[in-house]
Design a protein around this nucleic acid. Sequence first.
DNA 1: GCCGTTTTCGGCCCGACTGTTTTCAGTCG
Length: 569
Amino acid sequence: MNKKIVIKTLEKIALMLELQGENPFKISAFRKAANALELDERSLSEMEDITKIKGIGKGTAAVIHELIETGESSQLKELEEVVPKGLIPLLKLPGLGGKKLAKLYSELGIDSAEKLKEACENHDIQKLAGFGAKSEEKILKELENFGQRSERLPIWYLQTVVIDIHHVLTDIPEIQKFSVAGSYRRVSEMSKDIDFIVATAQPEKVKEQLLTKLVVKEVVAAGETKVSVILDGEEPVSVDFRLVSEKEFATALHHFTGSKDHNVRMRQLAKDQGKKISEYGVEQPDGAVLTFDSEEQFFAHFNLPFIPPTVRESGKELERLDELAGLVTMDSIVSDLHMHTTWSDGAHTVREMGQALIERGYAYGVITDHSQYLKVANGLTPERLKNQRVEIYQFNESHPNFTLYAGTEMDILPDATLDYDDEVLRELDFVIASIHSSFSQPQEKIMERLFTAIKNPYVHMIAHPTGRIIGQREGYNPDIPQLIQWASEYGKILELNANPYRLDLCIEHLVMAMEQNVPIAINTDAHAIEQLLFMEIGTKYAQKAWLKKELVVNTWSKEQFETFIRKNK
DNA sequence: GCCGTTTTCGGCCCGACTGTTTTCAGTCG
């Protein structure tokens, strides 16, 4: 029995129970059991006694055992007989939860979006106790764009929205300080909404200005401490602003950064000490509420080191505290190994990129323009590559404390050959190989192409190994465990491309690479100076995989890096 | 339903907002 099916079944039972208006704790027990299975790294067959897992007890274990033995769940079957299928998607309508839907079904027989719409139009809904004219109106409005709005938006889209909001908040004088929170702050690939924590002594004024200065499509809620809006744009985005006093800022930021599981663990920990955590502070056993100047101090209060937002996920981070100090951070990054210039499709010259790297405080960097196959990107012929190298080394002569290396981002061609001959590659300091074409080839062919690159002695690194664009395209589906195996055998680097469109390798793959001790380079793939900033997002994303400093190539000293790139020469 | 115990029941993280009420239930994060 596939573990995923078991998890899905438990979640489905939870949904069905919700629609029966069941006890919320019972519902969440099924969700917790599903979550516990998901977080456990073992497969089902490796688990001896599943009730030993915290969150799985007699009831949920019975469901799991039945699934393993018979392939189905009688409890789910019974629920499916009583609860109409059509109700499940309706749970997604804002404002409608299990209890209200259960009522709509039992009183009016509503079991589909069509029937719900009809009932609203006939004004049957407002006659029910607990519903009114406003509910009816709201449901009708929500039904209009039902199923249209995408549930989660990719980080690269949200980033532009966050920057816009940033500007608006900066211009409101009554705001003392603010920060983005939520899953965006934790650098999730996709987020459902954006959260901001705003410190102010004049929430009324701030609220007013937020509603006028932002491009608001819809006001969802506008209370004393919470303003919730949907912003207009290419894609509508839900944004929550939490208005708090300055002294509450740190605890509010922690609370609304989450994750939910992280908060639950923190609250349990507080409870064990007789304390109570809320967004407004930490209530002491004697009832006094403590606030903090920073999240660091908040964690210190519980004798914990600062836990970066990026790893606040499952709650298990509290068991990995000794690893925190070794995680890669922006402070440890001294180079960027993948960037483009005006020689191919970049916006800035070699000199300008080099200068920008120096200003970022790096010790070295590599210029890696495209190779000749990529004509659309003005890829370099061997002749131009040679000329470029002269320019790169000239830059070094006038900058003694910094080194720019001459590299390439060479295409791996569709026929599984490389875009430059070995004689050309041998002359370069650093060679990146990557796939930019024929994504839809069968996996064997893709792997043949990657293997050609991996086994070439002059290739140092494979860039954006899957070719994915978050939320948009899957990439070319390589066999990543195999690629990692090869990288380990042949001593190659795999990239974490820090461009927010890519973040490739993904977390799961980074974890696998780390287990095999394959070095990872976090690179911006910058096509302009501004994009060198992607390093921040890349580094944070790497933390999500608990990537250690030593394994990240661009934390290496120049000497270490040179030893690595010269080993096959 | 799960957990843990002061071991078979009571609590489960906690609080805001809305729309319905006329003190609160449901929903949401």
